[in-house]
Design a protein around this nucleic acid. Structure first.
Length: 278
DNA sequence: CGCATTTGACCCGCGC
DNA sequence: GCGCGGGTCAAATGCG
């Protein structure tokens, strides 16, 4: 997508990370950063003020967004796994439900239209090697078993199965934790097509959105050249689409105090990194 | 030819 | 103890 294009919903979002080719003074940069911070804080404050009901939703494990995806999940083949994790800590980002216990996470993601039953894939920045497939009793669609292919010693396993009732949904269950960084040896790049799992290990927030728009991953540690929330959002299929995504993301995250704190911290760190002399 | 995927067989845990 | 079902193994197969 053309860098010049920008989803309307993200207009003005974090322009501070835009690369400056000029040798404009660090002071000026700092001023812009501070101004941007003020704007962001004001915007978030206004949003929170306008939607106090979302605070209650966000603090409830059965929050609205989680309910949409989770309900589908639990009513189907993934119900057993989901029930087993009834006491698990829950994390969520718009459109994606992650239920986690210490080492088990269930992730719902919209399947790519091109995904066949034999080609289930939930991209998450890791390389996986399929080692088995099984048709389970309560789901006509086969369950695929994957191991992390990046490191032979990596204990992480992943199960992916199409939802029996909503076949456009994939349910991925992760077991264990990667003992290496989320990176593939041959660079399985996931520019705008990944599902969230990395946030479990890193602070949110670069934004990766799959083409269906139901899956968003945030990873602030993923700040390659030109990479930023703004840049990532530019890769969203259409400006309208991006706007919707932004709204959904904001709605689901803005009342999460932990997320906001993490976001603030991460943004501050990035500012410091971008201004070495600061 | 090497590597990833497929797929049938086998193992193991759990419920009856 | 037995049967069932989920999970894993490993040989066969396909593909680049």
């Amino acid at each position: 997508m053309d860098d010049g294009e920008r989803p309307t919903g993200s207009a003005g979002l974090l322009p501070l990370f835009a690369r400056s080719s000029t040798a404009e003074g660090l002071e000026e940069k700092l001023r812009r950063v501070r101004e941007e911070n003020r704007r962001l804080a004001a915007t978030l404050g206004a949003i929170l003020a306008d939607h106090p009901h979302l605070r209650a939703l966000a603090t409830s494990p059965a929050s609205a967004i989680a309910a949409t995806a989770t309900a589908r999940t639990r009513s189907s083949s993934a119900a057993n796994a989901a029930r087993e994790e009834a006491n698990a800590a829950r994390e969520q980002v718009a459109g994606v439900t992650v239920e986690s216990r210490s080492k088990v996470r269930t992730v719902c993601a919209r399947a790519e239209p091109s995904d066949s039953d034999a080609n289930l894939s939930v991209k998450d920045g890791h390389q996986w090697r399929k080692y088995g497939q099984k048709v389970t009793r309560d789901n006509p669609y086969p369950r695929a078993y994957f191991r992390c292919a990046f490191a032979p010693s990596c204990p992480v396993k992943k199960k992916v199965q199409r939802d029996a009732e909503d076949t456009s949904m994939l349910v991925a269950t992760y077991e264990g934790e990667h003992n290496h960084h989320a990176q593939s040896p041959v660079g399985e790049s996931i520019p705008n097509e990944s599902t969230g799992y990395g946030w479990a290990r890193s602070l949110p927030c670069s934004v990766s959105v799959n083409s269906s728009g139901r899956t968003i991953a945030l990873d602030l540690t993923n700040q390659g050249s030109g990479s930023s929330v703004q840049a990532a959002l530019r890769e969203v299929v259409t400006p309208e689409f991006g706007k919707l995504l932004v709204e959904e993301m904001v709605n689901s995250l803005k009342n999460d105090a932990e997320f906001m704190q993490a976001l603030t911290t991460a943004v501050a760190e990035k500012i410091v990194q971008n201004i070495p002399d600061l």
